[in-house]
Design a protein around this nucleic acid. Structure first.
Lengths: 340, 340
DNA sequence: TCTATTGATTAGAGCGCTCTAATCTTGTAG
DNA sequence: CTACAAGATTAGAGCGCTCTAATCAATAGA
């Protein structure tokens, strides 16, 4: 059961342990003859280098720590996929932890990650206090995803929620909508940026931003729409909705249909996230896509730059989202200048 | 930047490195006075034990390797969540990899995991040949999720797809359905068990099992329904559908509605997985729930039992799924004995 | 022939920890 | 006051590897 070591390979190949080490790290200063002999012996014994021993001896690490609040959230799962692909390509391995959006659990998770002396850590939408993050940055490279930081030792990768919301507004305005409401995501990650972007874009178009407090769930979307329908006289009703995310949008659509409205004929609805839900033909939701896998890749890249010492100044990635137009948006019937 | 070591703590506390080691592993054979002194020194220096060094010296590992084919798949993400919670509780850490359903990538991923000399590995629905899995089992504890094995050194955790499909059939039969079709998942994970369970349950009720070849996507569900509608005369049409999974079910419902049928009035539809999609009020799909988090927990537990040497014989967990009745199933209108 | 010179190989220390065995303290019995 | 057990502490080897510096071999130049 005990696996062969470098010493075993060396003995079998009739060389020194140091030479085997060189071959394993494929150093150029090994003669072809010896290299072949070592490789053969390693093969025969089924030798695999011991990463931890290597890491200890070389005082370097090929491990990246990842703390994710909740893997069930498809957003994080996608980011981790991107992270994994990039890390693997660079010869790094991921050690993963969940923080559960609880400062205490995050602290434990982070401590556990750091005890591996990783080359860097990625924190996905952490709720930990800035001081904890800065402390971590003193020990290894740190990159934050979906969270900002002003610390010089910390890189960040965020999607541009303002731009995303603005794109949605521009799309709706271009279709002819003038009265557009935003079902906002409350305190959820990214919600405030979207709300800000919505407001700015509306005002930039000379329109009055209408915001209905909501949450990132389908039931909250239904509720918000019912509220909206009560609040306005039929002629004053918005003709388009920008939901906080896709789930919220689907809930909103349900409530609209229940109230006898049709989407997109009577109401246009735009979601946010481009989740697998939005892509369902049955749903076919116009939505804003965040480049999630790309965010993972960039986070990994930022880490690698720091690790390799290629960069010391912080980098702040702000990724541009993309509007995916499907079947829930169209020209307005009511209230558009043409039909007024 | 270089972090304090045990030696530093020992010096500051005025004791030997060995004593610090004992305190860190909170051994009972340390006097209270020394323990306090060591703890204080460690605190002041911000000392954190080096997991890799510990692992190397003690020839034990607190790392569990996890290979998942695709984190984007919510099923796997949920299992990993369960795994993470159980591992953390037991003081283990997860190192994660994706295998991408490619034998070659899986081989690399597995090799990479094993190079950490983990205490055990969890393979989520691997496609690797049995020989590769058995080889891994020679190096550490191995548990397979959503894949069977006959190897004595390998534990398995699977959901009972046969039982799940049978439960769905029983539910439909109890509602009065006699003609039930299964849209099958082809070669997807778990599909064959569901198909088998469907066939057995139908025959056990004296009914003819109708199977339509499909896949685990919504578009495949639509296609399968159109095929079904062509294949049968209106009076002979099934009154209920058991889809391969939730996505497939949603596709099927779309196609049914498009063809002028209503769900559940004209057709009852049952999904499989109880994904977040099924829970949407707009969808409200009757479906079969797999205890995914529990599967992760059990996988971890199986590993821990092996690691602690509490068990040598393989364990084969077959988890019971649960039927979640929502709004897409009802008594049949057409074709039921009462209405014939 | 003898030295440089270059390239290939190896000895040996050390990474930060654990673990065994040895040593040092106490407390207690004789 | 000595003897001895029991408990507390430590020295030192070693986990599997890397890395520096030293050694060795082979070729080229004088």
């Amino acid at each position: 059961m005990t696996r062969p070591t470098m010493e075993d390979v060396a003995e079998r190949a009739g060389v020194s342990r140091a030479l085997v080490s060189l071959v394993m790290r494929n150093s150029p200063k090994v003669s072809d003859r010896r290299r072949a002999a070592v490789l053969k012996a390693a093969e025969e014994l089924g030798y695999q280098p011991h990463v931890m021993a290597r890491s200890l001896a070389s005082r370097t690490s090929t491990v990246l720590g990842v703390m994710v609040s909740d893997l069930r959230n498809a957003f994080f799962a996608d980011v981790v996929e991107g992270l994994d692909a990039a890390a693997r390509a660079a010869g790094f391995d991921l050690i993963l932890n969940t923080g559960g959006r609880s400062p205490a659990r995050e602290r434990d998770a982070l401590r556990s990650l750091l005890s591996f002396r990783p080359a860097g850590v990625v924190l996905l939408s952490p709720v930990a206090p800035a001081s904890a993050i800065d402390a971590a940055a003193g020990q290894c490279a740190v990159v934050l995803v979906s969270r900002t930081s002003r610390a010089p030792g910390v890189d960040t990768v965020n999607d541009d929620g303002e731009a995303g919301a603005a794109m949605a507004v521009e799309h709706l305005v271009a279709l002819g909508h003038r009265r557009i409401a935003h079902l906002d995501g409350g305190g959820a990650a990214g919600a405030s940026a979207r709300r800000r972007g919505f407001g700015q874009a509306m005002r930039a178009n000379g329109l009055e931003p209408v915001v209905v407090r909501s949450e990132h769930t389908d039931t909250a979307g239904e509720k918000a729409v019912r509220e909206l329908l009560c609040r306005y006289a039929p002629a004053e009703l918005p003709t388009a909705l920008l939901a906080g995310n896709d789930f919220n949008a689907v809930g909103a659509i349900s409530a609209l249909e229940e109230a006898g409205f049709r989407v997109p004929e009577d109401f246009s609805v735009v979601g946010y996230d481009n989740s697998s839900l939005a892509a369902l033909r049955h749903v076919s939701l116009t939505t804003v896509d965040q480049p999630r896998t790309e965010m993972g890749r960039l986070a990994c890249e930022a880490l690698l730059e720091r690790i390799r010492g290629e960069r010391a100044e912080p980098v702040r990635h702000l990724l541009h989202p993309r509007l995916v137009v499907r079947s829930t948006t169209a020209n307005p019937r009511r209230g558009s200048p043409a039909h007024r």
